[in-house]
């Protein structure tokens, strides 16, 4: 069985990943304000040994029924040991096995953060979970946005062939330009969107509403896509709240929002905070421009003001 990337990736210092987590939480909070009873949901994720998302989901949403999936047999013992809350059940299962065996009778927020690059097993999971999700369930996937290891040295023609042969019709809109190294995340995005749309197309009791489509990179490119399976009335209320509170996320479209990484000193950060929270002309903004920061960076910071983490060292 493949090994978990938690063996050698430290999740402590990944500011873009942390922003992504916080944005996803905000999406769920907005959904709660629109009437969905989030505290009564269960959360299914892949907590590895750090359980960062589990900590945040409980603290910010009050969810206290949780399942963490760990497919790696050796990491499973560590995961069980490190689970921060007694109500987290760690299961030594692949996501596919979990979807197959679970009844999905409880309202669920499921976030599958996969190891490795895009692959057919993810599309299988998407197809399977779409048949089981109930109205009100949430589903997010996070995938590495670069080429899988088997394609790293392949030509673009061979990469496109791999997409067509292994991912089938879900790769129908992927072009040869998309599979170039610089654009590969676009190919992954197209496949995920097509797979999710297709998986839910047969459901007549509701529609899958994309709520989050983001890309980010701390050391490697990553992409998170997901949303909720909702009735029409639920979608309307959610749309309004999202447009107001998270306007930078594309509403209903298929654009990928890039979570910028900011490498700022504390002084620069303070300047950014002032610049983006004052309308009209601003001395802080002018100072930033003189320091060489572009307007696009200032705008990006404005979107992410509430989500960019601050890391401090404590001496005990």
């Amino acid at each position: 069985m493949a090994q978990s990337s938690a063996r050698w990736i430290s999740y402590d210092l990944r500011p873009a990943k942390q922003s992504e987590r916080r944005i996803l939480l905000d999406v769920l909070k907005v959904a709660a304000e629109a009437g969905l009873p989030l505290p009564t949901y269960r959360y299914v994720g892949m907590g590895a040994v750090r359980f960062y998302d589990f900590l945040l989901v409980h603290r910010y949403l009050g969810i206290d029924r949780m399942i963490s999936l760990e497919h790696d047999k050796r990491m499973y013992r560590r995961a069980e040991f490190n689970a921060p809350f007694g109500f987290i059940k760690v299961k030594n299962q692949t996501s596919g096995d979990f979807i197959e065996q679970d009844s999905f009778s409880d309202l669920t927020v499921a976030w599958f953060d996969y190891d490795g690059g895009i692959g057919p097993h993810m599309l299988r999971d998407i197809s399977a979970i779409a048949l089981k999700m109930k109205l009100g369930d949430f589903f997010f996937v996070t995938v590495y946005g670069g080429p899988p290891s088997s394609l790293v040295k392949s030509s673009d023609v061979d990469r496109l062939a791999w997409f067509q042969d292994h991912l089938g019709d879900a790769a129908g809109e992927v072009t040869i330009e998309n599979v170039e190294n610089a654009n590969f995340i676009t190919a992954v995005h197209k496949v995920l969107i097509a797979a999710i749309k297709s998986a839910f197309a047969a459901r007549r009791d509701g529609r899958f509403r994309f709520l989050l489509q983001v890309q980010y990179s701390d050391s490697v490119p990553m992409i998170t896509v997901g949303g909720a399976f909702l009735a029409d009335g639920q979608t309307l209320a959610l749309n309004k709240n999202l447009a107001r509170q998270l306007p930078f996320l594309a509403q209903g479209g298929e654009q990928l929002y890039e979570i910028s990484s900011f490498h700022l000193t504390e002084q620069e950060r303070a300047l950014f905070d002032r610049a983006v929270t004052r309308t009209g002309r601003s001395r802080a903004r002018n100072t930033l421009r003189k320091l060489g920061f572009r307007d696009a960076e200032i705008m990006a910071y404005r979107d992410l003001l509430r989500y960019v983490p601050r890391y401090v060292e404590t001496i005990v």
């Binding site: 879900a170 129908g172 999710i196 749309k197 197309a201």
Partner: peptide
């Protein structure tokens, strides 16, 4: 309408 929006049809038509 459903087919057009099913995520796969456009790719199938392109092929």
């Amino acid at each position: 309408s459903r087919r057009i929006c099913d995520g796969l049809f456009v790719g199938q038509l392109r092929e």
